[in-house]
Write a protein that binds this DNA or RNA. Structure first.
Ligand code: SF4
Ligand code: SF4
Lengths: 149, 149
DNA sequence: TTTATATACGATAATAGTTATCGTATATAA
DNA sequence: TTATATACGATAACTATTATCGTATATAAA
């Protein structure tokens, strides 16, 4: 229920990379190389972030990407929606953020847990909205002692 | 990131059904019929709940299933772990509940968001642990006005 | 003008995970 | 003996995720 997409991780890795190099432009190649990510997917991920308005792109030889939005202004809920599409705990619940697009479910008529699920969906959305992407910069990778064999 | 398995829903539907019919035994057939669920999967789901100690089974002609544990004592975090296996936000984070079994990730060495992810994992676990299955009984299906076309 | 380097983007293959089904065995009350 | 139930392994069908390929376009610099 809880696992993120790889592309979401790639996106966060790229955003953090950019937030550390303020003012400086970066490129899909640089990000992919530095973190060992697959180039093609990294490139597409960055294009997607640009489509969403989180970063801006410049084409051509010295082109690349730069942060556009303040990461503090982006919640994890919003980011997930941008990267993974509309999210909901169950198909009958309205996807986070936009709209009451409550989908269809074949069990809808007889289902007795819909109320519970709708409530859960709301709470999950609130939880994810309480986390902002500027937290990416706060925590660094702390290798726990004994983490490696 | 956020969607539950169908089997988890089937399990919750069954648990709620049983919690409404205290003392009375129910069966996979009864649950499947009443809510229109696929019988085979419902049966396996109930077997799984029994393996986990949430319900007890009786074989034979008048057999079936009964609640064993108080739903108030079961958190959503525990339930998800039982139904969907060890859960974590990312593969490098320790799955909820049991252990520091932090898995392997090919990007581990260079990754800079591991700290953020580990922290997120902990917070998600806390969130899911704050919800208990007795809430299943509190909310009923409230059909929103205009929910159907 | 040519070259090197970058983004842009559609199409598709490979992989993994979820969901559903089939077949058979066993237990038990009537 | 029969009807009804759980128990359980194997596998098929479906869906989503993840990775790759091919080609087009933009731009700075030689
Ligand atoms: S109607 Fe019930 S079974 Fe269907 S998605 Fe909603 S909660 Fe799940
Ligand atoms: S090491 Fe980094 S990329 Fe790998 S799973 Fe952990 S957070 Fe994700």
């Amino acid at each position: 229920m809880i696992r993120l997409n790889r592309t979401t991780e790639y996106g966060l890795i790229a955003l953090r990379h950019m937030s550390q190099r303020r003012q400086n432009i970066t490129s899909a190649r640089e990000v992919a190389d530095q973190y060992g990510l697959p180039f093609e997917i990294t490139a597409k991920t960055l294009q997607r972030l640009r489509d969403c308005g989180l970063i801006q792109s410049a084409q051509g030889a010295h082109g690349g990407y730069m942060l556009k939005k303040e990461l503090e202004e982006v919640t994890l809920a919003e980011f997930l929606q941008l990267m993974e599409g509309p999210q909901a705990v169950v198909v009958c619940a309205p996807p986070m953020g936009s709209g009451h697009v409550g989908c269809e479910c074949e069990y809808k008529g007889k289902c007795e847990i819909k109320g519970f699920m709708t409530d859960l969906n709301t709470r999950v959305f609130r939880f994810l909205s309480s986390i902002r992407l500027n937290e990416l910069g706060r925590l660094r990778t702390v290798l726990a002692i004994g983490d490696e064999p």
